[in-house]
Simulated scan of single mutants.
Amino acid sequence: MTSASGQQGSFITFEGIDGSGKSTQVHRLADHLRARGHDVVITREPGGSPGAEEIRALVLQGDPDRWSAETEILLFTAARRDHMERLIGPALAAGKTVICDRFADSTRMYQGLSRGDLRAVVDQLHSLMIGREPDLTVLIDMDPATGLERALARQTADERFEAFGAGLQQAMRAGFLALAEEFRDRFRVVDGGRDIDTVAADIAAIADNALA
């Protein structure tokens, strides 16, 4: 989809293990791009639209084993479809820059690998129901132990995946780095172990180059 002027917006996603600083850097990049004249929409997954937020509550609250991996894949895909229809698609069609905290790559990792060898199922559903990859994916790489410590310190009620522990964090870091190799055309890996300003400056430079 394109806007009336024919200008298609840009779709940027952030990925990384829990506690890697994605949310902070999403807002830092949005501020940077707005200062450069971009019309920016910030969103997140799971969620981002009213229907998707309802599904988020179903998935992230409660016991970690509440849903099977297969059920979670279906729920996340349904949430993403609504998110695309209601928010991301229209914003891109209007020529806006959409920055999303997590997208399909998180489903490829969390449900496709950590909870069963279901990566092919995730990709098939994504191709059938979503059909869109980001233009740029920023992967904030972080030491798993440090990331888990940060995530647990947040004490948020709905982030239940931290309950899977350090083993999941380590597997996810390896999985995200493998995805970055698989999708080299859109992934950029940033060292998240440095101070916030340094990380933000690197991400801003990456985005400026991608949007040029």
Rank of each mutant, 00 (worst) to 15 (best):
L128V: 11
P134T: 13
A157C: 02
R154Q: 08
D143M: 06
L148K: 01
F161K: 02
F161L: 09
A174P: 05
E149M: 12
L152S: 09
Q155E: 12
V138C: 09
L168T: 00
P134Y: 11
A153N: 08
L148C: 09
L168P: 02
E149P: 00
D141L: 06
I130S: 02
E159I: 01
I130K: 07
M129A: 15
L152N: 03
G131E: 10
E159K: 14
R154K: 08
T156C: 05
R150K: 07
T146A: 13
D158M: 09
V138P: 10
D158W: 12
A153G: 11
E159L: 14
D143H: 03
M129Y: 14
R173L: 10
E133A: 13
E162G: 00
R160N: 13
R173P: 01
L152Y: 03
E162A: 00
A174T: 14
M129H: 14
R132F: 08
A151G: 12
A174M: 05
I140W: 01
S127D: 07
T156Q: 15
D158I: 11
E133K: 15
F164D: 04
R132G: 01
F161T: 00
A145L: 04
R154N: 04
R160K: 11
E162M: 04
I140M: 09
G165Q: 12
I140Q: 01
G147V: 00
R173M: 05
A171T: 08
I140E: 00
I130E: 03
R173I: 09
A174Y: 04
A157Q: 12
R132E: 09
E149W: 02
D135E: 10
G147Y: 04
D158K: 13
P134C: 10
G165R: 09
E133P: 03
Q155M: 07
A153R: 15
I130R: 05
A153P: 01
T156V: 10
R132I: 14
M142S: 07
S127E: 11
A153E: 03
G167D: 14
E149Q: 13
Q169P: 03
A166V: 10
R132T: 10
G131P: 08
F161E: 00
M172W: 05
L152T: 09
Q170P: 02
E159V: 06
R132Y: 10
F164K: 11
A163H: 11
E133Q: 14
T156M: 13
E133W: 15
L136K: 12
I130M: 09
R132M: 11
A166K: 08
T137I: 07
G175A: 11
E149N: 13
M129F: 15
L128P: 02
F164Y: 13
A163E: 11
D158E: 14
F164R: 14
G175L: 04
A145N: 08
D135N: 15
T146G: 08
T137W: 13
R154P: 02
A174N: 11
M172R: 15
L136R: 15
G131D: 09
R150C: 04
Q170D: 05
Q170A: 12
D141K: 07
A151K: 02
T156D: 13
A174D: 10
E149R: 15
F161M: 11
L136N: 14
M142V: 15
M142K: 01
M142E: 05
G147S: 04
G131W: 07
V138D: 02
A151M: 06
M142C: 13
